[in-house]
């Protein structure tokens, strides 16, 4: 029951979307800092905030399927 309640709050699709958005933020901030368009510390600050979100949301998106699996064959 607890599991279902938790899974209702964050679906796999939401986690995938969060992972994608945070990855884009990380790459953009890092690239802008590298090319000198924004201050290095600002770029690092954005990456430091967005990277953990990316990691957690990616791992949440990878989690096991929420669909019922096949029933194991238990013999006749």
């Amino acid at each position: 029951m607890i599991r279902k309640e938790t899974e209702k709050k964050i679906s796999k699709d939401q986690a995938k979307a969060a992972a994608l958005i945070s990855a884009i933020i990380c790459i953009t901030a890092s690239a802008l800092a590298f090319t000198g368009h924004i201050n290095g510390w600002l770029g690092a600050g954005i990456v430091v905030v967005a990277f953990p979100v990316f990691v957690l949301s990616l791992f949440t998106a990878l989690r096991e399927s929420t669909k019922d699996g096949d029933y194991p064959f238990v013999g006749y």
């Binding site: 938790t6 990691v55 791992f59 989690r63 096991e64």
Partner: peptide, 22 residues
Amino acid sequence: FSFKQTWIPKTASKVLFVAIVP
């Protein structure tokens, strides 16, 4: 661990339990 089941224990302080990881 990432493929395993993820949940928050009933006894947990939910915000702290999650926020501490990032």
